[in-house]
Design a protein around this nucleic acid. Structure first.
Lengths: 355, 355
DNA sequence: ATGAAAGCGCTAACAC
DNA sequence: GTGTTAGCGCTTTCAT
């Protein structure tokens, strides 16, 4: 059973013959303790392996030094990078994180999770799940009035909440424009699930780039972000439009599935079909062929989220309403063999989509 | 600043005209409250969005309902799966998890993290980092006497600690034996970093299988688990021994790098070189060619770890020393094109390495 | 430089 | 059924 007896401050006080208060002073490295007593107390602490109870401290200080993180899809590449960024930055700022993984994305599932985080008195919440058509809005509407600051990752900018993400439309454009530059004229799209905001935006960017280039919108098929769905989706597209010569996949994993299909059908990459992925997974450089992809600063998003929260705490000393900010991080195109950079072209490859 | 004023039980009591204790009873769904008062109190709770302070509860109950998780390399596949398993099972058992990500693996880095977890009075700890040559042992030696149960994932069985993992030697054998079955005679190995126990064990399994088959140990090169190192390592091997016809890679990602090298050098897979990977990443089924790989039950390891902890709490009602157990989970070989199953052979593919 | 008293928000143990 | 008293382990007044 958990109630292992740990030494308490009271016991340290008793055994050293000082008051509880003095021990507390030593613990908090207060200057007003005589060197002799300090040493005495420290010796006792050391000897008994005493560690102050953070729960009791949180209660009296009203500071939990905890951040709540709501994530989803940790078992896939990408999400883990964001959580790593969050964990690292939190650690550096002296915070711990409570991680909650969501099974589904429906708002009714999310609200109780937030409530639980609030019960633990987390000082801030990072919502690292994806924005679906309505889940984030629902969450935002159902949030209790008295709540710590909450940062939404990869969500629509909002006047009421801090959001951190990339410009998916611009990034979708970037990917597609590269294919256009390579001379591709029939450019298809492997979209993510269209109830995800990111999926819609990337598709819209693809459409816009094609329209700008005066090209017809090629065929689209949707997947679920993962490799298996890339297979099915590209097969569907090829059955319908075997003449496509360019493909923009909304995730690197779907692109991986697409490569597999192309290989099986004897379609050469990039000669017959140039492919651009999305995410910038490290592994993409080792696909065969290596993948040209739009890099998302996933780790940086996590770090930025923690910084927003932590500086928020320190900024407003009182009841200043948390400052709402909208961060749009830059994306980059890195070139692989699947859609190589034009040799004699401009250096390119960098898009700063806002700030 | 965090000290947002949240409603307290005392305030609910005051506004409903009952005692704090009665509100507490309602909160804990005790039967000894009259329907009328219960309804009254519930209405007030609802109206003010009151949520009990879990910190205060933890203090008085001496139950934090928190589990500490120490992980590393979350941004890579595999670890995320384990953490997902942990998070899911914890959720199902009514526990929350505090996640600590480690930058390095040195014991001196790990102990303070454990101390911090102890300060938060977690009821159990899951060490999901890898076992290096000495880190786990050091941690085990430096553990404070009064501590909750701690489960080590992927570590050597120990008489003093619960460990959960697979039999990496048997699994390395399994992979290698399959290559032998396919008629390969010069079987090389892409090892993980040899200061990792798992890397050593897999290599030893490979060696043992070759010895059993009366084959000479082929060349070995080590990598860092990731795709890039698979490239370098296979290149080194090929330069030394271009005649190899089989390859056992200690991770799927290194196998991915190996596939890339083979492709560039015009080596056909599996005709010229059959490859077996390790991990069982979902993505491996979509490599080109798809990968034959040893599946580790990563998610299940996470789940099992939580179950060990939670049943441990409930089992021993008093100061029973936590029951130490050693769990060895089974591994499976799944077949891809890189080292196909023998068509007319036995069903095969399942090894139950202990229990 | 040190101690005594009060209280953080809640629950357990006892009254009535 | 409900209220009162005590106390979880610690930090904050305010004395001395």
């Amino acid at each position: 059973m958990p109630p292992l007896h740990r030494v308490t401050i009271k016991e340290i006080a008793a055994m050293t013959g000082v008051s509880v208060q003095t021990v507390s002073r030593v613990l908090n490295k207060r200057p007003d303790v005589s060197p002799a007593t300090r040493q005495l107390v420290e010796a006792a602490i050391e000897e008994h392996g005493f560690r102050p109870n953070a729960v009791a401290r949180s209660l009296v200080n009203r500071r939990s030094r905890m951040l709540g993180v709501i994530a989803s899809g940790l078992e896939y590449l990408g999400v883990g990078q964001t959580v790593t960024g969050i964990a690292d930055e939190a650690e550096a700022s002296g915070y711990s994180i409570i991680l909650k993984e969501l099974a589904g994305f429906d708002a009714p599932d999310i609200v109780p999770v937030i409530e639980l985080l609030l019960e633990h008195r987390v000082e801030g919440i990072i919502f690292a799940g994806p924005q679906m058509v309505s889940n984030v809005r629902h969450v935002q509407e159902q949030l209790p009035a008295a709540r710590p600051q909450i940062v939404f990752l990869k969500s629509d900018p909002s006047p009421d909440f801090t959001t951190i993400g990339i410009d998916n439309i611009a990034a979708g454009r970037l990917a597609t424009e590269h294919l256009v530059t390579l001379g591709r004229r029939r450019i298809a799209h492997l979209a993510g699930p269209l109830d995800w905001r990111e999926a819609r935006d990337r598709r819209d960017g693809w459409r816009a780039a094609l329209a700008d280039a005066g090209l017809p919108a090629g065929p689209v098929a949707t997947g679920d972000w993962f490799a298996g769905s890339g297979v099915t989706a590209l097969e569907a597209i090829l059955d319908e439009a075997p003449e496509i010569d360019g493909l923009f996949a909304a995730s690197d994993l779907m692109a991986l599935g697409a490569i597999q299909v192309a290989h099986r059908r004897g379609i050469r990459i990039p000669d017959d079909l140039a492919i651009v992925g999305f995410d910038g997974l490290r592994e993409a450089a080792h696909f065969t062929p290596s993948l040209t992809t739009v890099v998302q600063p996933l780790t940086e998003m996590g770090r930025a989220a923690v910084r927003e929260l932590v500086t928020g705490f320190e900024g407003g000393a009182g009841e200043t309403p948390a400052p709402v900010r909208t961060l749009v991080l830059p994306t980059t195109l890195i070139y692989g063999e699947s859609a190589p950079a034009l040799v004699a072209s401009s250096v390119g490859g960098r898009t700063a989509a806002g700030a």
